[in-house]
């Protein structure tokens, strides 16, 4: 059998000019649970599906607020994301300390991009095994960036990475034109619906497994979890809730 000899490290090109180690790292992103991001004229939103290792364990952290004006959502190796987000926190603080200005999202994104690139050109390192969505508001308005293990960074209107994220992207592409003028609430709904589309049949979005991060022209980036997102889930998926909630309503009466 032909054995691929070109995939042992990130300093070897294949005869086609590919770097397999980097491509494998991209696969690690696809193993992570899905995260979604959208921007409008006034807001940038992240939504994420959290996993728990077992019934009784806590859920993993998917959205990390970095500075008051932005945060990141991750898919892939969480520990790599922690290294990157710590670096982003340092860089963001440095910008505030030296210039008294919040760092531009394009700037911070290209800095982690450059850092990731180094790992793909030197022996003895491995590429980061994590993808990020970076969302927030800076002097130039709301932004969403996607970061990949290869060091590629892209500015998007909407994006989704992680397991089964193609379904979310399909939803986003279909509704692409609507996002720009969306209100905050509408944008949250779109993000949750896109997220929902990437779930496998037997799964639901709940207050336990969903995270939302919101930044806006008039508000700092904030992470919303648990009961804070209950009403959004309810209003977004109300049609479905009505169908199933017959018994639920009865219980409410009882209590």
């Amino acid at each position: 059998m032909f054995r691929n000899n070109y995939d042992n490290d990130s300093v070897t090109f294949s005869p086609q000019g590919r770097i397999f180690q980097v491509e494998y790292a991209q696969e690690a992103v696809k193993q992570g649970s899905v995260v979604v991001g959208i921007v409008s004229k006034s807001h940038a939103i992240l939504a994420a599906l959290k996993r728990n290792a077992e019934e009784l364990s806590s859920y993993q952290r998917k959205i990390i607020p970095v500075d008051t004006h932005y945060g990141v959502a991750l898919a892939g190796l969480a520990s790599d994301a922690r290294v990157l987000s710590n670096f982003m926190k340092q860089q963001s603080l440095a910008s505030r300390l030296t210039y008294d200005r919040p760092i531009l999202l394009s700037e911070i994104t290209s800095r982690i991009g450059d850092r990731a690139q180094t790992n793909t050109q030197h022996y003895g390192r491995r590429p980061y095994g994590v993808g990020l969505l970076i969302a927030g508001v800076d002097a130039r308005g709301p932004h969403l960036f996607e970061f990949q293990p290869s060091g590629v960074t892209l500015e998007c209107v909407a994006g989704a990475i992680g397991a089964r994220s193609q379904m979310a992207r399909t939803y986003l592409e279909r509704n692409l034109d609507a996002f720009e003028d969306c209100s905050r609430d509408e944008l949250i709904k779109h993000a949750l619906r896109a997220l929902k589309d990437s779930l496998s049949q037997d799964k639901e979005l709940t207050v336990d497994n969903t995270s939302v991060g919101i930044g806006g022209l008039e508000e700092n980036f904030k992470l919303y979890e648990g009961q804070e997102i209950a009403s959004w889930l309810e209003t977004t998926f109300e049609n479905k809730a009505e169908g199933e909630a017959g018994g639920g309503e009865g219980m409410e009466v009882d209590s």
Partner: peptide, 22 residues
């Protein structure tokens, strides 16, 4: 062709040629 900085017997560095493919 598996390692950079290595010449083949006919004097080529294949890793550079593969980079050109990219």
């Amino acid at each position: 062709d598996l390692s950079n900085s290595v010449f083949s017997p006919d004097g080529r560095n294949f890793q550079v040629e593969y980079a050109v493919k990219a």
